[in-house]
Design a protein around this nucleic acid. Structure first.
Lengths: 213, 213
DNA sequence: TTATCCTGAGCGAGCGCTCAGTCGGAGGGC
DNA sequence: GCCCTCCGACTGAGCGCTCGCTCAGGATAA
């Protein structure tokens, strides 16, 4: 029984299978299947049998790669955060002033939130179903994403493209950015009556940056 | 089999019991019990037996006042929103300019979010477990609370204590206020390292109102 | 043959909900 | 006052079913 760590700094989950490549491949199948099922029916209402079947194998096999249903939820949460982090970091520019790069990052981030809104909802709704330790890792991962904005704010303050901010203020603004991105996922049913994604990004960027110059 | 409507504009839920006062009393017991259980274990992991026992009677009796487990969740969500609305409206002042009253309202609102943070989490996490029709009513109720801020913004624009805003902008700002209040509930584990409730209110009010004068 | 991965029938616990029955007391006849 | 009847709120054992998880055995490649 080996243990496999898919994300640096993440929890390692035991598996019965020796071939590490196979473990990664199968777990990717499991996660892809589970994400769709969790989004449609929620964690508690999807059965392990469904997960296995959707992933393309039987329950027995599922439990070769995972020790409990909660493990699958943990893998799903980490995969979602990792995907968000990757998409966001891929779109980050380093070209301009801190303020300019921050504005671009906010736009990128909200776009990612738009594309992954179902996934964001999923994390909000199901994180509390994780065992305590897993939940800690997931929240930590989310803080790491928030750190992207703290870094950009710090750079903007250092190159004087933003007004001086103390570290707690930077933290607060970073959290505000995160949450206003999530807001588009949570409240699109109400907001989309009045705004397109582009308008939303424009207005929220203005509000966020208006106070920082 | 009568039907009883506890909240104006809400769904009516059938009951077998004839005495309306008794229905209200028992449903209050059910809601009080369920709120605590849902906060601690979540909706899916609390059993109907637990609800009944905590409320002080047997499962059989529970089902005299409710037709399904989901009905209890609906009653809980509506009760939470109603409590938030009442607490918020009780604290609203009409004394000053629109801008002054808005600032006071934001402070009151975040304080209410602080006091009811478990309840806010509950709503975010479990709303999607409601049947579609019930969910619609719950989201409607939340929009009614958002409307409190839209109204204040409109008043502020009309008496020139705020800069001109078009209706969609007012809507957006009202949603921002709502969500930044919820943020204190969701992220207090991270924010409370740097801020007290009072500091949080001060800073968020400044950010929110800074752009509106 | 052995090592490895996969299968799916089966287990036992626990769930939401039902319904035959209990029981306290209101009301009416004497 | 006393008895009897009926009402309706309440009880909880039990039904039918689903769930997470296991494990004895099958398949395949080396």
């Amino acid at each position: 029984m080996t243990k496999l760590q898919s994300i640096p700094g993440g929890r390692s989950i035991p598996t019965e299978v020796k071939d590490n490549d196979l473990v990664l491949r199968r777990r990717r199948q499991i996660v892809d299947a589970a994400v769709q099922l969790f989004i449609n029916k929620g964690f508690h209402k999807t059965t392990t049998r469904e997960m296995a079947k959707t992933a393309g194998f039987s329950i027995g096999t599922l439990y070769e790669y995972v020790t409990s249903k909660e493990d699958v939820l943990y893998l799903v949460c980490q995969a979602i955060h990792q995907e968000m982090e990757e998409h966001l970091k891929k779109r980050l520019s380093q070209g301009g002033t801190g303020a300019q790069d921050l504005e671009a990052a906010i736009g990128s981030y909200i776009t990612v939130c738009h594309q992954m809104s179902d996934h964001i909802l999923l994390i909000y709704q199901e994180t509390k179903s994780l065992p305590a330790e897993s939940r800690r890792f997931v929240l930590e991962h989310e803080l790491r994403i928030t750190g992207v904005f703290t870094d950009l704010l710090r750079r903007g303050v250092e190159d004087f493209s933003l007004r001086p901010l103390n570290p707690p203020e930077m933290e607060l603004v970073a959290h505000n950015i995160m949450v206003l991105g999530h807001m588009w996922a949570f409240r699109r049913w109400a907001l989309a009556r009045s705004f397109s994604l582009e308008q939303y990004i424009q207005l929220q960027s203005d509000y966020l940056l208006g106070e920082l110059v």
